[in-house]
């Protein structure tokens, strides 16, 4: 079992999606995340085990990313390999045999059309076993509030890339607080920092997706 977790983790970490994929060059012609996951399920490995492999792989690449040892392209490939595994887990997630570890609503705030940072956070958090409800870009407060109300107990993440849309982030945090006072609010994006997080009364700021994952895991443990 340990072996399968490691087999999946290494492919997620290295971004080895499937056998056909020529990337990374040093794993050419080897089975990818896709084949390993399919074979494991066929042999009766529990779907939970595959999810554990994803989490381990995403955790490793997330740490390397926050240490500047790898960059956005490598993180994207890891997420791609992870989704190759998740595709096999989908039926089990739908039937309830495998459970998500929590729910996470995410979106880029009103007036801002940038999605890269938001997508990276969404993928990394998904890789940590969360169900991610992605509201897209240019999301007004009422859409966040509606999604939070439809997903009780969820966390919410707000992204902004422009200094000019930080005011909209502030407004969204205020609106969410007013309507959903118990919801934990995470914020991120290039112009955002810890001071701003405190100023607008959000719960958590992280400069990279891994920080958000660690926060979510701490919250779950409490």
């Amino acid at each position: 079992m340990q072996n399968i977790i490691e087999e999946i983790a290494i492919r997620v970490e290295k971004g080895k999606v499937n056998k056909m994929s020529p990337f990374p060059p040093d794993m050419k012609d080897q089975d990818g995340a896709d084949e390993i996951a399919a074979a494991a399920l066929k042999e009766g490995v529990k779907p939970d085990t595959l999810l554990e492999g994803c989490m381990l792989g995403m955790d490793r690449i997330g740490v390397k990313f926050s240490e500047n040892k790898v960059f956005v392209p490598e993180l994207l490939m890891a997420a791609k390999a992870m989704s190759a595994v998740m595709k096999h887990l989908q039926p089990f997630l739908e039937s309830g045999e495998v459970k998500h570890r929590g729910k996470f609503v995410i979106g880029t705030v009103s007036g801002d059309l940038h999605d890269i940072g938001k997508n990276l956070a969404a993928m990394t958090i998904k890789g940590n076993g969360f169900e991610v409800i992605d509201l897209g870009v240019d999301v007004p407060s009422n859409k966040f509030i509606q999604a939070i109300q439809e997903n009780p107990g969820c966390f919410v993440g707000l992204s902004a890339l422009l200094t000019t849309t930080m005011v909209n982030m502030e407004k969204s945090v205020r609106d969410i607080r007013e309507n959903c006072p118990d919801t934990r609010i995470l914020i991120g994006g290039a112009p955002v920092n810890q001071d701003f997080c405190q100023k607008i009364g959000a719960d958590f700021y992280s400069a990279d997706p891994q920080g958000a994952v660690e926060f979510l895991n701490r919250m779950r443990a409490n």
Partner: peptide, 9 residues
């Protein structure tokens, strides 16, 4: 994603 891997290489 072939674009992404081309950048990495």
């Amino acid at each position: 994603f072939d674009i992404i891997t081309r950048v990495i290489t």
